[in-house]
Design a protein around this nucleic acid. Structure first.
Lengths: 226, 226
DNA sequence: GCATATTTGTCCGTATGTATA
DNA sequence: CTATACATACGGACAAATATG
């Protein structure tokens, strides 16, 4: 436990530009999303403040930011914990994805967004060829971000960014990332081709089925307790 | 259980004991949304901390929360200011509304949600009859919240709550709330009737036109500088 | 169930940096 | 350019809640 916190030392160098609280939040966010801090784990004020060499007050501001992003959970007089998602949370996240991504595929996707989609698909295929399933996951996420960007809305982009950050909390408690990401590489390509052909009326139900399957797969494999 | 009382269920989350920072954030949020603090206005740490009798550290935690909700803007070493929305922001907010509310009307709206919609419409009509345009605005907002609730997603509910809070920033810099809210009372009723009849394929374009008009009206009347 | 240690919640004083009149 | 006001950040203090033996 002490060793886990000690590893944070490496992030100490990144402090130096914007407000300290925001930079601390950035560091912690990265750590949570990469699975270094695990769902359910408590983040001790004193320990982290000491290692990052910031005051407890500043750290608490950072905690507030991450709490609002749903990555941390505040329990009064108990402290902050990395959020642990329930199966219901997963279902809700997919509900939101259907709404936001569904709206995107119903539009005529601009050429710029198509370019990003193509690159994401190529990246995923390349990673898959090299058995790099972590890389496939990252590329797939980029694919869906590019998809949402077709809406042309900064706020939807931001909402998707946060949604995917939450989803990572789920990914990290699962072993076997291949099972999770491999099936969707070719479906991403298929979806891309529908969009390139401007066949929105087919893309929408295709995406629905896609997300249904992804949700089912995730729920089935997901055990919130560890 | 009484249906009117059922609406209160949504406020249940606000009951639990909370930290001072969260209660301060609640107070400030209310003040901003009621127009007491005006867009562009600076919120002085020292002055507010003194009046609310909390420490500046605690107040800063509250500021972080509201900043993340887009109601306050942080300028490094300058302080926090009530967010001032641009015309582009307004357009983006309506983009998001089309996505979230559009998804709702495409569904079969559950009876429970229909009940809330009916009550909101009735409330708006009653307020309009009494020339209470502020009340009409509140009722209309409740209508759209009930609409989004048809998605059955806590996260979309929360997103809508925040979106409407941002929109209030715009409403408050406009004089003549009647112009803003009156036209939509009967359109809300019309939309409700389409939903009650289960005519989703008509409700969707009706809502689109509705939001287009509302956005146009708002953009036209809105001058970000005061 | 009790006594004790630990941790959070909150406040204060202060030093430093930054923007602006 | 200087002066002033204010935000930023720190560290210490203590009460209150919670965990621990």
């Amino acid at each position: 436990m002490d060793n886990v916190v000690a590893d944070l030392q490496h992030d100490r160098s990144r402090l130096g530009r914007t407000s300290t609280a925001e930079r601390v939040a950035d560091i912690l966010r990265d750590r949570i999303m990469e699975g270094f801090f695990k769902p359910g784990q408590q983040l001790s004020e004193e320990a982290i403040a000491k290692v990052l060499e910031v005051s407890r007050n500043t750290l608490r501001e950072a905690f507030r930011l991450l709490g609002h992003e749903q990555l941390l959970e505040h329990r009064l007089n108990r402290g902050v914990f990395v959020r642990k998602l329930s199966a219901d949370d997963v279902r809700d996240l997919y509900r939101v994805r259907r709404v936001i991504e569904g709206a995107a595929v119903r539009r005529k996707v601009p050429e710029e967004a198509l370019g990003r989609l193509r690159r994401a698909v190529a990246e995923a295929e390349q990673a898959a060829a090299g058995d790099d399933w972590q890389g496939v996951g990252t590329a797939n996420i980029r694919f869906h971000q590019a998809l949402v960007a077709a809406n042309g809305s900064p706020r939807l982009d931001e909402a998707m960014r946060q949604l995917l950050a939450e989803l990572r909390l789920v990914f990290h408690v699962m072993e076997n990332p291949r099972l999770l990401h491999e099936p969707f590489v070719e479906r991403n390509r298929a979806l891309l081709e529908l969009l390139e052909a401007g066949r929105a009326e087919e893309a929408a139900p295709f995406l629905e089925a896609y997300l249904d399957d992804a949700e089912r797969l995730l729920i089935h494999a997901y055990d919130p307790n560890r």
